[in-house]
Write a protein that binds this DNA or RNA. Structure first.
Length: 436
RNA sequence: GACCCGUUCGUCUAUCGGUUAGGACUCCAGGUUUUCAUCCUGGCAAGAAGGGUUCGACUCCCUUACGGGUCGCCA
């Protein structure tokens, strides 16, 4: 029997990390077992569906690299994959319920009559869970068909899982209490229930439920901030699941290899954006300068910075120092244009060195006299300047860095000197020397 | 309120009865780097509480507390 999993989002908002992780786990499980991953759009609530939300799902899935074997745009033998197009199928299954007397009319809607007994499920994550349906107050008969003739989630979800021969349902823990309802429906249909795995929810750093407005919640925001999809996938995979090794950095393919439902935790995890950024930096380390430069360019342009001829050189100088592509503009602005700001603390620290002004002025003179310009030549000039003044080269480096970049941190000084070129260096040295 | 799931450093987690409770992020301190960053080393920091069971419990059981989830003609 081939494994068939599905991700069944409803297009009522943006794809959020919780949904993305659910999709990811279903995808990983299918890939791990050479199975089929189905994307099914649960758009039965016409009032709340939007085209933007539908597109956000596709965009998010594509960006994450979670391709679906069956679903919108791909096709498959179990379609259509939009529930809004499956009314005839539901009518057919509803008739089974009608014929067997398991539904009754209530105010124009149809309710499914639960069997009043304890219902036990075997969850792959939560283990054995029993809900007692003899307590009617806690488990009222559920509406399966609205008075307007449309069907509700529980009904279509179960019918489609049966119709599409889904073998494993991996979904958020918010569905745990729904499962006995689904099991009762499946039993009434005489169908074979899929195996269920309810994964813990993702919470905000403060422990509150992560909703769509919270920071880090919308998958669509990650590319905007300059995250690598591989890093986001890597990070969210580790929320509530672990590979049982101390390794933390994985590619999607590597995750698919070692993924196992048995290694999923039961407790909800909080979302730590800082660690997500660290994971991103780890993935960034493996990206080539050319690819990095191409990916960072939109951010640089959006910040209003010019793409200079030596753009690649500029990127190479900062590539291993940033965590996000979104951090690039602020890290390279002083190398791409002459308009940059001075950090007050850095300036204050430079002023703390009484001889900084004269040293910088002397260095400007020496730079001007250099027959050839290069980062090494400039550094040699720096050493000579310092020695001539009876100072240590190190004393000159900080003021020089501030003069050239306006800040205390940045790329290697040799890189900066080389990238800026003689004229700019001299100009900036004189400018700061005059202020100290 | 009822029902369900859960509870190891601030955060993500390892531990399938016997460990100095390990790793990672963050933070701090050293070292390397003539500078910045990377990097290396070290440090801070945890079994919610109380009862059992057991020679022995973070691990099993119960109670309490706390957190999350669910109780729709939403999904």
């Amino acid at each position: 029997m081939t494994v068939r999993t599905r991700f069944a989002p409803s297009p009522t908002g943006y794809l959020h990390v919780g949904g993305a992780r659910t999709a990811l786990f279903n995808w990983l499980f299918a890939r791990k077992h050479g199975g089929v991953f189905v994307l099914r759009v649960e758009d039965t609530d016409e009032a709340r569906n939007t085209d933007e939300a539908r597109q956000a799902i596709f965009d998010g899935m594509n960006w994450l690299g979670l391709d679906w074997d069956e679903g919108p745009g791909t096709g498959g033998d179990y379609g259509p994959y939009y529930q809004s197009e499956r009314k005839p199928v539901y009518d057919e299954w509803f008739k089974k319920l009608l014929d067997s007397g398991r539904v009754y009319e209530d105010g124009g809607a149809w309710r499914f009559r639960f069997e009043r007994k304890p219902v036990t499920m075997q969850d792959l994550v939560c283990g054995e869970v029993t809900i007692d349906y003899r307590d009617e107050s806690n488990t009222p008969d559920m509406v399966v068909k609205r008075s307007d003739g449309s069907y509700v989630f529980h009904f279509v979800n179960v019918v489609d899982d049966l119709e599409m021969e889904i073998t494993h349902v991996i979904r958020g823990e918010d569905h745990l209490m729904n499962t006995p309802k689904h099991l009762q429906l499946i039993e009434a249909f005489g169908g074979k229930a899929p195996q269920y795995a309810h994964i813990p929810l993702i919470l905000n750093p403060d422990g509150s439920k992560m909703s769509k407005r919270d920071a880090g919640a919308a998958v669509g925001d990650y590319p905007k901030q300059g995250f690598l999809s591989a890093a986001v996938v890597n990070f969210i995979s580790l929320l509530g699941w672990n590979p049982k090794t101390e390794r933390e950095i994985f590619t999607l393919a590597e995750l698919a290899e070692c993924f196992s439902l048995g290694n999923i935790n039961r407790a909800p995890a909080r979302f730590d954006l800082e660690k997500c950024k660290w994971v991103n930096q780890q993935h960034l380390l493996g990206v080539s300068v050319a690819d990095f430069a191409a990916a960072a360019q939109p951010f640089v342009v959006a910040a209003g910075l010019p793409i200079a001829e030596n753009y690649l050189e500029v990127i190479a100088a900062v590539k291993d120092k940033v965590r996000l592509f979104g951090d690039v503009p602020a890290a390279v602005d002083f190398m791409l244009q002459d308009d940059f700001s001075f950090d007050e603390d850095a300036l204050a620290k430079a002023r703390g060195n009484a001889s900084a002004g004269s040293l910088l002025a002397a260095l400007a003179v020496r730079f001007s006299g250099l027959s050839e310009w290069s980062g090494d030549a400039a550094k040699a000039a720096l050493n000579e300047t310092a020695l001539a003044a009876g100072a240590k080269p190190g004393q000159l480096m900080f003021p020089l860095r501030v003069a050239l970049s306006g800040r205390a941190h940045g790329p290697d000084l040799g890189d900066i000197l080389s990238i800026l070129g003689r004229e700019r260096c001299v100009t900036r040295l004189r400018a700061l020397a005059g202020q100290l």
